[in-house]
């Protein structure tokens, strides 16, 4: 059963009772919420994901609630709870869906040390994965959305999940977060893309999410080999420029973007060393998405992945 097999009312009812078990990548989350914007967001943006009415075991038990205080009346808020405990402060209610997404990331980052987890987008073609670690504002998510709308498979938009045992990339597809102008850009370029309701005035500006392609969800159990590490940078008016980047520097940057490098210690160092060994490393400066996508489509597959 997938989410879209259920009616919108059916999704809401299950969420209200805390009876919705959603599978994303290797994880099952039991979600409880009565907040309408999250219910409709899940129904729309997670439409293709597997869902269970009752699973004996859930990796994460999460709830999104409106805190029971006076603010509820004049400035409504939302709290994210992990098994009854609120790890962070409430946010304004209009950011509820974004908070759900951030909370789901938090669950993985804090409880999945079986994997090395990086702050990076991961896309794949022909079984070869491209890891794109990048700071906010670098256009990483826009490029990721453009690539997955042009035939690349989405492994993850925010979290690169790497198996310590195989150094393979584990898919964790979820809706792609878009910020500010990129919401409009993606909407214009790909009119068929399904984009959810925008939340304004978040700490990250205006945020909306794009539904991942059906094929990415259908193949969410299928790992990919690391092949490229790409540091993209969007610079308006800049001519396309793809350059080889030092492997040692690339490793240092991956370490900077790793959430649990210090937790895993030597295993993380070995694993990232393997990723860098097997990957070609580049920086990409671009202003035209078309040019960037066709440049990346033309990348040669490195020998270890071929």
């Amino acid at each position: 059963m997938i989410v879209s097999d259920l009616s919108t009312a059916g999704v809401s009812r299950r969420l209200g009772k805390g009876q919705l078990f959603l599978r994303t990548g290797p994880f099952i989350s039991r979600i409880q919420t009565s907040i309408a914007s999250i219910q409709s967001g899940i129904a729309l943006l997670y439409a293709g994901f597997p869902v269970y009415d009752d699973a004996p075991f859930a990796d994460f038990h999460v709830a999104l609630e409106r805190p029971p205080n006076l603010r509820r009346w004049f400035r409504p808020q939302v709290t994210f709870k992990f098994d009854g405990w609120a790890p962070f402060k409430p946010l304004p209610l209009n950011q509820a869906f974004a908070m759900f997404e951030w909370g789901m990331n938090w669950c993985v980052v804090n409880h999945a040390h079986r994997y090395l987890v990086l702050h990076a987008a991961v896309v794949e073609r022909n079984g070869c994965a491209m890891i794109m670690p990048a700071p906010p504002g670098s256009g990483k998510s826009t490029l990721c959305a453009a690539l997955v709308s042009s035939g690349w498979r989405l492994l993850s938009d925010e979290l690169a999940v790497i198996s310590l045992a195989t150094a393979g990339l584990v898919p964790l597809p979820r809706p792609v977060g878009l910020k500010n102008q990129s919401i409009h850009v993606i909407h214009q370029r790909y009119p068929d893309a399904t984009i959810g309701k925008a939340a304004h005035d978040t700490t990250k500006g205006t945020v909306a999410h794009m539904q991942p392609p059906a094929e990415s969800i259908a193949r969410q159990q299928e790992e990919a080999r690391p092949a490229w590490v790409l540091f993209p940078k969007y610079t308006p008016g800049h001519a396309l420029e793809l350059q080889r980047y030092s492997k040692a520097q690339s490793l240092l940057k991956l370490v900077e973007n790793a959430f649990n490098f210090t937790v895993l210690g030597k295993q993380a160092f070995d694993c990232l060393g393997q990723v860098i060994d097997d990957s070609d490393c580049f920086t990409l400066e671009y202003s035209s998405l078309d040019e960037a996508v066709s440049q990346l489509n033309a990348l040669e597959i490195p020998a270890p992945c071929a």
Binding site: P26, F57, H113, V263, G265
Partner: peptide
Amino acid sequence: VPEQVRTHLESECHLADQQKR
């Protein structure tokens, strides 16, 4: 231990090892 459960137990082992280090 069942596979789903092991994810969490292994995760905790990594945290414990880090703490010891």
